[in-house]
C-alpha cells in the first residue's frame, strides 16, 4: 500500500540575494500519509513547500510527483499545480468572488467543467469542510477560520494527489484554530495525502504519521510522531522546549 506519491531528493534553494534557504532536503511521502514539517522560523519550511509546486524554482534537486520528475523546464507547470493542492497561511481567497465561485473557478477554467458540474463538486467539498451555509458570502464577510476552511475546500475540489499546508492556523485567533485543525484531521482520517508545515506541535503529534524537523535548510530529524516525545538531537530538543515555554 505504501506507494510513493511525492518524492524529494537533494532539494536546494538559493535565493537571488544569496540566502541558502534549503541545503539538500530529501524525503518521500507515501499514498495516504500525512507528513508534518516543523522547525524554527526561517528554517526553510515554506521554501520546501513552494519548491514542490514550483511557485519558486529549486536551484538543484529532483521533485517527483507520482514517479514523474516535475521540476524540468518542459513539464507542464499548470498541470502539475492543478494536481497539487496548496493552503496558505493567509488564506488567499479570491476577494472579489463569492465562496462558491472561489471553489468553482479552478474547476471551470482549468478542468473545463460546466457550471453545473462544478457547482455540484463545490457543494460536496463545502459540505466536507462544513461551510454550506455561507456559500454565497464574499470572503471579506467571513471569519478567519471560515476562510481557511473555504481555502481547504478550494484545494480539495481539484482532487489533488497531495495537499500542501503552509502554517494553516498561524494567522488565526486561538478560538478559531480548532475548527480548521478538526477539518484537517478529518482529511487525514479519510486518507488524504498531505504535507503540513505547522507550529502546532500537539496537533502534529496527533495527526501526522511522520514528523520532519528542519533547521537551517536541512532535515535534522525524521521519524514517526513519537519522536516528539523523545527527540534524539539536541537542536530539536531545544526547539521543542522553546515552544513549550511559549505555551
Amino acid at each position: 500500500m505504501s506507494e510513493v506519491v511525492l518524492s524529494i531528493a537533494d532539494l536546494e534553494k538559493m535565493y537571488v540575494g544569496g540566502v541558502h534557504a534549503v541545503r539538500g532536503v530529501s524525503f518521500d511521502v507515501n499514498q495516504g500519509e500525512s507528513v508534518a514539517i516543523i522547525g524554527s522560523s526561517g528554517s526553510g519550511k515554506s521554501t520546501v513547500l513552494r519548491c514542490i509546486n514550483r511557485l519558486i524554482e529549486p536551484t538543484a534537486g529532483v521533485v517527483k510527483l507520482g514517479g514523474e520528475q516535475i521540476n524540468t523546464p518542459y513539464a507542464d507547470v499548470n498541470d502539475i499545480r492543478s494536481r497539487i493542492g496548496m493552503v496558505f497561511q493567509s488564506f488567499e481567497l479570491f476577494a472579489h468572488l463569492r465562496v462558491l465561485e472561489n471553489i468553482t473557478l479552478g474547476l471551470r477554467k482549468v478542468r473545463g467543467m460546466s457550471v453545473e458540474d462544478a457547482n455540484e463538486i463545490a457543494h460536496q467539498v463545502l459540505g466536507r469542510v462544513d461551510m454550506l451555509d455561507r456559500i454565497h458570502a464574499y470572503p471579506g464577510n467571513l471569519s478567519g477560520g471560515q476562510m481557511q476552511r473555504v481555502a481547504i475546500a478550494r484545494a480539495l475540489a481539484m482532487k489533488p494527489e497531495v495537499i500542501l499546508f503552509d502554517e494553516p492556523t498561524s494567522a488565526l485567533d486561538p478560538e478559531l484554530i480548532g475548527s480548521v485543525l478538526q477539518t484537517i484531521r478529518g482529511l487525514a482520517d479519510e486518507g488524504m495525502t498531505m504535507v503540513i508545515v505547522t507550529h502546532e506541535i500537539n496537533f502534529a503529534r496527533d495527526v501526522a504519521d511522520r514528523i520532519i524537523y528542519m533547521d537551517e535548510g536541512l532535515v535534522v530529524e525524521e521519524g514517526p510522531s513519537s519522536i516528539i516525545q523523545n527527540p534524539k538531537t539536541e537542536r530539536m530538543q531545544k526547539f521543542l522546549s522553546s515552544i513549550n515555554e511559549e505555551h
Binding site: N53, L55, N78, D79, R81, S82, R83, I84, G85, M86, F88, S90, E92, L93, F94, A95, H96, L105, G106, K109, V110, R154, A155, M158
Partner: peptide, 26 residues
C-alpha cells in the same frame, strides 16, 4: 497581494488566466 497570484497559480490557472480571473478584476 502577491498571494492572490500564487493562489490562482496553485490551482493550476495560467499566468494570464490568473491575471484575467483574479488579479485584474480586483
Amino acid at each position: 497581494p502577491s498571494g492572490q497570484m500564487e493562489a490562482g497559480r496553485s490551482i493550476g490557472l495560467t499566468y494570464m488566466g490568473t491575471m484575467n480571473q483574479v488579479v485584474l478584476p480586483q
